[in-house]
């Protein structure tokens, strides 16, 4: 290898440091026992996590985010899987246009999507509500689900479905007994993706959320207005653990599932 290669390796290490050092500092400082959320560390303690647990506003924000994320994930995955099946398994006129339509919500800047949805429902006399927030999250996560599920679906062979049908299974029976188990890893991946995006979203959420309702990201944002506190770092650590550990567990589970079924 030429010596240029060692420079490339060094550069790579530096870029990874740039990406992860700030996050590592958040985790580190969340265990700081000092009153201020900064260096030098005075000692290791869990007091900020205890304080999070006792902070009603934060616990409520967590509940909101979890419920919102779960509902978004279920709805978005259902719509996305049905749509992806149509896109991967059938050919029909206008398919290219439909493909663009399905990813349109990420081609439009999120701010514009947020404004359009808010004002349109506002003009229909709908005040800001949890339903608006949910609708926004569903439309925004849908393209990601479609892209992930389609990518996985292409690898699922259709001979199994054809075999089931030729043996007399109806389309619905075939879907639940053959197709769904085969594409389950894709469905789970899509659902998890939708959940995480919804759980993290702030750009649209700040427009859509009704007064008094906070999700975890908007709660963090509101707390930042004062100053950075160890509590924010602790909250950040909890979120990092949730959003990183959950997908990793999910991926491991999906791999085990698909291995158990010998395909997918």
């Amino acid at each position: 290898m030429p010596s240029g290669w060692s420079l490339i390796r060094l550069g790579t290490i530096l870029v990874y440091l740039f990406m992860f050092a700030p996050v590592a500092v958040v985790v580190l400082l969340s265990f700081n026992s000092s009153q201020f959320g900064s260096f030098p560390m005075e000692g290791v303690s869990f007091r900020w996590f205890v304080e999070l647990w006792n902070n009603d506003a934060i616990v409520r924000a967590f509940q909101t985010s979890l419920v919102l994320g779960a509902l978004t994930s279920v709805i978005s995955t259902t719509l996305g899987v049905l749509g992806s099946l149509a896109m991967v398994r059938y050919s029909f006129p206008g398919k290219n246009l439909i493909a663009t339509a399905l990813i349109a919500p990420i081609l439009v800047p999120e701010v514009v999507l947020a404004v359009a949805l808010l004002l349109f429902l506002g003009a229909l006399g709908q005040p800001k509500s949890f339903v608006l927030l949910l609708a926004g999250h569903v439309i925004f996560t849908l393209p990601f689900v479609v892209l992930v599920v389609q990518a996985r679906l292409v690898g699922v062979r259709r001979e199994y479905e054809e075999a089931a049908m030729s043996l007399g299974a109806g389309p619905v029976q075939t879907f639940f007994q053959v197709t769904l188990p085969l594409i389950l890893p894709a469905v789970l991946a899509g659902g998890l993706f939708a959940f995480t995006i919804s759980f993290d979203d702030i750009t649209g959420t700040l427009f859509w959320k009704p007064g008094g309702v906070e999700t975890v990201p908007t709660q963090i944002f509101a707390m930042l207005r004062n100053s950075i506190s160890p509590e924010i770092n602790a909250l950040g650590t909890v979120m990092i653990v949730m959003t990183v550990a959950l997908p990793l567990l999910g991926a491991a589970a999906a791999r085990r599932l698909s291995r158990g079924r010998g395909g997918g």
Binding site: L79, G80, M87, I98, L102, A116, L119, L121
Partner: peptide
């Protein structure tokens, strides 16, 4: 299969953008 997703996109994105 596509109708739920397309309905959502039409009602929650296309028409709202035309509206603004």
């Amino acid at each position: 299969l596509l109708s739920p997703a397309l309905t959502a996109i039409l009602l929650l994105l296309v028409i709202p953008v035309c509206f603004i």
